[in-house]
Design a protein around this nucleic acid. Structure first.
Lengths: 344, 344
DNA sequence: GTTGGCACTCACATATATCGAGTGCTAAGC
DNA sequence: GCTTAGCACTCGATATATGTGAGTGCCAAC
C-alpha cells in the first residue's frame, strides 16, 4: 500500500498546484497532460492523480470535478518542487524606492513597512520586533509642556523611545521637574524593563512620603511607558486586501480580529527559525488561520534577528513569487534599521 | 398633485422606519396597522403608504413586497418624528468607566476613543481633531539617545506633542546638541506651524553654511514633525464591524479604503455645524458612503469645538439610540481632554 | 375619509430535466 | 509492468416548470 513519489508524480503535483494557484479552478487530467508537454496521455496522468489522491496530496471537490491540492500537497510542492521566481532588477529597485520615501524613525519605519508591503502584495501584512532579551532603561526625560503638563520620554538600551503627555496636579516649575528627573533616573536608569513591576513602582511611590500624591501620575505614566517599551512593536496593514479573496468573505471578521491581537500574531512567529517560514492552512495553530497561509521572514539588525515581517493570504498564494520578494523586503528593512541602530 | 403629510401619515412613516431598522425586512400594511394600535385598517394604511411612496419617502423592493423607507424617508423621520431614547444611568456609567480605563495621554485618548466606541456600538468609528486655526511652535527639545541618535520633540501651543527618532551623521555631544537646540528654538519657536514651509527650512539650512550637511537630517525631521502636528489627529476603529452588515459585503473594500484616508474623512465633518450631524446615504458626497449613514458629534475643549467623533454604519441604523449615546460619549471625551488642556 | 373584499403580482422555494467536464475502470498495446 | 484508448458513470451547474403566500392596488360600500 506504500506509494512512491516518482518524478512524474511530482511533476503532476507541481502542475496542479501551479495551475490552481493561478486559476483557482480544479485541474483536470487533460490539462495536466498538456502542461507536461504531451509526454503522457491524460489516462496516465489520471492514474498518477489517483495515487496522489490516496497519499493525501490532492483533494476532489466532488466526484466529477478536477483535482485540487490539499494543504499537504502544497507543503510537498513547496518542499520538493518549488522554483523561486527571482526578482528582476526593476522589482528590487521598486522595493528600495518604497523605503526611500519612508520615514527614518524606526518605529514609523516598521509601521510603514507593513503598509507598503500590503500595498505591494495585496495581502494582509504584519510587522513586529522581537521582545528583546534584555532591555534596560537608559534614561527618562521630563519636558515641561504647560503649567500642569509634562511630557515624559523613556529611552531604552535597545533604542526604543516612548513618550506620553502627562497632566500633573502641581504647578510645573524647573525645580520640581529637576527633582523628579533626578529621582526617577536614579531609581529607574539601568533597570531591566521587565523588573519594573507595578509593585516596584508602588514602593517607590511610597518612599516619596508626603509627595506621593504629587508624583503618582508621573510614576504611573512611567510604568505604562515601560510596559509599552517592553513589548515588541507590532503593526499590521492591508487587512482589507483579504476581502478581495472570495474564500475569506465568511471569516473576514475573525481574521481582522486576529490581526488586532498582537500576542496572537506574535505567537505565529518562531523566533528560532531564521529566514523564511511558510505555514499552510491547517498547519496553523490558530483557528482563524485554518484557511490561510502565512509567510514570515525575519530581518536582522546587524547580525542578530531583530524582528519579523510577514504576509497573510489565501492558501492559494503564489509562494514562488512571494517568498523571494518578502525575503528581499525583509533584508532591505533590516539594512535600514541597522543604519539607525548600529552602535547606539 | 401636492400631498400633505398629516399626522397619521407621519405615524405610518415612523412605524415603517422603526420596524425596518429593527428587522431589516420590508414592512407590510397589516403590521403597520397593528403598530398603530388598530386604530385604522390595513387598507387605510395602504392608502397612506401609496401617498408616502409618491412623495418619495418609501420604496418597494418589488411590487408584492412591503415598503422600505427611502433615504428621504429616514431624513423626514429623523427631522420630524424621532424621539431620542435617553441613556439609562447604567449606560452613562458604562461610558464613564470605559474612559477611566483609558490612557490620559490626549493623543492615545483619542485613538482609544475610536476603538472603545467601535467596540460598544459595533459600527465603524472615526475620531479627529480639527486643524487648529492657530498653532505655533512652543518649543523644540533635542534629547541625545545614542552616539548618533537624537530624539526630537516638538511641542505646540495647542498642546500637541510629536516626537521622532533621528539618526545624525555626527557624534552626538552635549555641545552640539546645545548649539542646535538654541539654533532651532531661535528660528522656530513662536512660528505658525503653517508658515514652516519646505522653503523656509531650506533657507535655514543654507544659513548654516558649512554645517548644513550636519544638521540637514534634523531640520528635515523638524519639518516632518511640523507637518504632522499641523494636521489634525485622525483615528478610526472597528472597520471590521461593518462586515457584520450584509449590505456592506460588496463595498467593504472601498469603505475600508475610505477610512484610511484622513483627508476624505475630515471632509465629512462640517466644522461649523456644532452638536450632532446626521448624514444619510445619498446625502453623503463620497461615493463609498452612498449606502451608509454617518453620525458625527463634535466635542469641545473648554468652550470651543476641538474635534469630532463619529460612527459610520448602515443606513438602517438605530438613530434614536445612537445619537444621544454618541453625544454623551463626545461630551465625556471633551471633558477629559479639557482637564488635560485647560490653561496649558 | 375609511373599510372590506378580491384579483393580481412576484420573489422564493421546490421539483424535474438536461448537459458536460472529468473520473474510474477495463482491456489492449508496447 | 507501465501506458493508453475507450466508455460508462457521476454529479454539480444550469435551465425550465410549478406552487405558495405575503402584500399590493383598486373598487364599491359604508
Amino acid at each position: 500500500m506504500e506509494h512512491e513519489l516518482d518524478i512524474r508524480k511530482l511533476r503532476v503535483l507541481a502542475a496542479i498546484v501551479e495551475t490552481f494557484i493561478q486559476t483557482g479552478e480544479p485541474v483536470g487530467s487533460k490539462l495536466v497532460a498538456e502542461l507536461l508537454g504531451g509526454e503522457f496521455s491524460p489516462a496516465t496522468v489520471r492514474n498518477d492523480m489517483a495515487t496522489l489522491f490516496e497519499m493525501g496530496l490532492l483533494e476532489q471537490p466532488h466526484t466529477s470535478a478536477g483535482r485540487v491540492p490539499s494543504h499537504l500537497g502544497y507543503r510537498t510542492y513547496i518542499d520538493r518542487m518549488m522554483k523561486y521566481k527571482p526578482l528582476t532588477k526593476g522589482e528590487r529597485d521598486e522595493i528600495e524606492a518604497m523605503f526611500n520615501l519612508q520615514d527614518p524613525d524606526p518605529d514609523r519605519l516598521l509601521a510603514d513597512a507593513a503598509q507598503v508591503l500590503a500595498d505591494k502584495t495585496k495581502y494582509a501584512t504584519i510587522s513586529t520586533t522581537f521582545k528583546p532579551r534584555s532591555n534596560k532603561v537608559k534614561r527618562i526625560e521630563l519636558i515641561p509642556a504647560g503649567g500642569h503638563t509634562v511630557v515624559i520620554l523613556l529611552i531604552t538600551t535597545t533604542g526604543v523611545v516612548k513618550s506620553r503627555v502627562c497632566r500633573v496636579s502641581f504647578q510645573v516649575t524647573p525645580e520640581v521637574i529637576d527633582f523628579f528627573s533626578r529621582f526617577s533616573n536614579g531609581r529607574f536608569a539601568g533597570m531591566e524593563i521587565a523588573d519594573i513591576t507595578a509593585f516596584y513602582v508602588n514602593s517607590l511611590s511610597m518612599s516619596l512620603g508626603e509627595y506621593t500624591a504629587y508624583f503618582n501620575q508621573l510614576l504611573s505614566a512611567i510604568y505604562d511607558l515601560c510596559r509599552e517599551a517592553g513589548e515588541g512593536q507590532y503593526y499590521s496593514g492591508g487587512a482589507s486586501n483579504l476581502l478581495t479573496y472570495a474564500e475569506f468573505s465568511q471569516i473576514a471578521r475573525e481574521l481582522f480580529g486576529l490581526l488586532d491581537r498582537r500576542e496572537t500574531v506574535q505567537s505565529l512567529i518562531s523566533r528560532d527559525q531564521g529566514g523564511v517560514q511558510i505555514t499552510i492552512g491547517r498547519e496553523n495553530s490558530q483557528m482563524e488561520l485554518l484557511g490561510s497561509s502565512v509567510i514570515i521572514s525575519q530581518y536582522k539588525i546587524g547580525e542578530s534577528g531583530a524582528g519579523a515581517i510577514g504576509i497573510i493570504g489565501p492558501v492559494r498564494m503564489d509562494y514562488a513569487r512571494m517568498v523571494p520578494r518578502l525575503e528581499y523586503f525583509a533584508a532591505t528593512l533590516g539594512r535600514l534599521l541597522s543604519e539607525t541602530f548600529e552602535e547606539t
